[in-house]
Amino acid sequence: MATTGEETFESQPQEGETRRDFLTLATGAFGAFGVGAAAWPLIDQMNPAADTLAASTTEVNLEPIQEGQRVVIKWRGKPVFITRRSEAQIEEARKVPISALVDPEKDEDRVQKPEWLIVVGVCTHLGCIPLGSKQGEKRGEYQGWFCPCHGSHYDTSGRIRKGPAPTNLPIPKYTFLSDKLVRVG
């Protein structure tokens, strides 16, 4: 420590000022840390509370879902699209060359079981709910989903194919508890 002190004195001959500068800086830093520590709870309180986080898994019974059918469940306040895909739909999703995709991802990497496609039903553009899960709704040019807000088209793997959305419909964390029961979250 002593040597460090001496070096400082050399570059700045006025001993008193150097010490004072150091004290001012140290006090300032300490004060800034204190202000930060006091501000943090005020900022962090706005993040999801414990009960909100706790309510973040949902179990779904897959039994009644027919082949080709789509259902919408609510998870963390937003919709999750569960599709029991037909052979044709799987085929459709897998035959597209990766290079034709806006956000390249293989269909194989987006499903645990090819029959079940599970995606968060929130458009990755600005958060609208894409149409296509209900019978008769517009499904867009790629037979997946179509977002009416600004015209994003998703395919049968929930991947963005056309329109302003930047990325594919995200895959939530999910586990098959049994063949007919899945837990989302």
Binding site: M46, N47, P48, T52, G77, K78
Partner: peptide
Amino acid sequence: VTWLWGGFSVDNATLNR
């Protein structure tokens, strides 16, 4: 966005704030 919402979507926490 999560911080603004106080959750994972626009919800009660959002409305309150």
